[in-house]
Computed example of a mutant assay.
Amino acid sequence: MSEPAIPKVGWRGELVPSIKKFLDAHPRLQLGGVEGYTFERRHHTQVFGIHSLPDDRIHPIKEVEYTAICGPHGTIPIRVLYPSSGQEKRLQGKAGALIYFHGGGYTVGSVDEFENGLRLVAEESGCQVYAVEYRRAPEFQFPTQLDEYSAVIDWLQGKEGKRRGVDPNRVCGGGDSAGGNMTAGVTLRRLDEGKKPLAAQMLLYPEARLPFDTPAATENNSGYYLECNGIFSFADHYLPRGTPPAHRYVSPGMQPARDLKGQPPTTVFTSGFDPLRDVGVEYAHKLSEAGVDVHWHHYKNLTHGCGMV
């Protein structure tokens, strides 16, 4: 059963000194800041891209495969991380797989910036990681990204997953921030469509809904990497005219608990110094009310994007 005591809002402690030092050293590193998304795209790649890291900071991995599939909107590049720790199950056809959609307000970010952390996830879990270079907004808007997510799930649950040693019943989805939002959205959509579900979903500080009426939006409005007021622009980039922000697949966190039933096991991570903190906590609370097997982990001293900074 679900853990019983998930609150509706979170809290914060004391900001980790190393994160404060990093943010102070990179004052222009913001998400949703005044520089605009084109600057943020370039700057994030320069700071976080795996090609920019010294060799001694790159996590080892058994194998990296660069591949692509033909999706509903064109070619979808996918970077596959095969861990040494999962080799035996891969050979047995019993490997687990995590499809990962990165964050960045639907607009910023690339697999290059997330590969290093995902290498660690792969080796620590023994699970293959499929990092997807999905089409970003504003050039491509909702539901393009969910179409691509679902296409990758179908691909991995089929013969191409089997060819890579993946058990079709062990395909999970995950993502951070906007990637967490899209993971929650595609999980609900596949449930509604009667498609084979994900085995589990992993939501890292997800944008479960717009956060502006929460304590976290006031406490963490500015200065902690994700600029809360910049989320308006990300929502505008992502949503085509005529699609309300309350749409079930856009704002899963706005749905009543009764409409969230039947989802796969879910893990939700939240951070104290994050304007999205309380919408993530709220979503975990609603999932618990809906009877979903949900596990919530709160890191009161960390920021949004803590896995990167």
Rank of each mutant, 00 (worst) to 15 (best):
C228P: 00
N229K: 10
N229I: 00
G230A: 08
G230Y: 03
I231H: 00
I231T: 15
I231R: 02
I231K: 00
S233Q: 15
A235I: 07
A235N: 08
D236Q: 14
D236Y: 10
L239K: 04
P240R: 09
G242C: 03
G242Y: 03
P244N: 05
P245V: 14
P245M: 09
H247G: 03
R248G: 00
R248P: 00
R248W: 04
Y249I: 12
Y249S: 05
Y249L: 05
V250G: 04
V250H: 08
S251G: 01
P252I: 08
P252S: 05
P252V: 10
G253Q: 10
G253F: 10
M254Q: 13
M254V: 08
P256R: 14
A257M: 08
R258A: 13
R258S: 13
R258I: 12
R258L: 08
P264I: 04
P264E: 03
P265R: 01
P265I: 02
T266H: 02
T267A: 06
V268S: 11
V268D: 13
V268W: 10
V268L: 11
F269I: 15
T270W: 09
T270F: 12
S271T: 15
S271G: 03
G272A: 15
G272E: 11
D274S: 02
P275D: 04
L276V: 06
R277M: 13
D278H: 05
V279S: 01
V279A: 03
V281A: 11
E282S: 15
Y283V: 06
A284S: 07
A284I: 13
A284T: 12
H285T: 01
K286F: 06
K286T: 09
K286L: 14
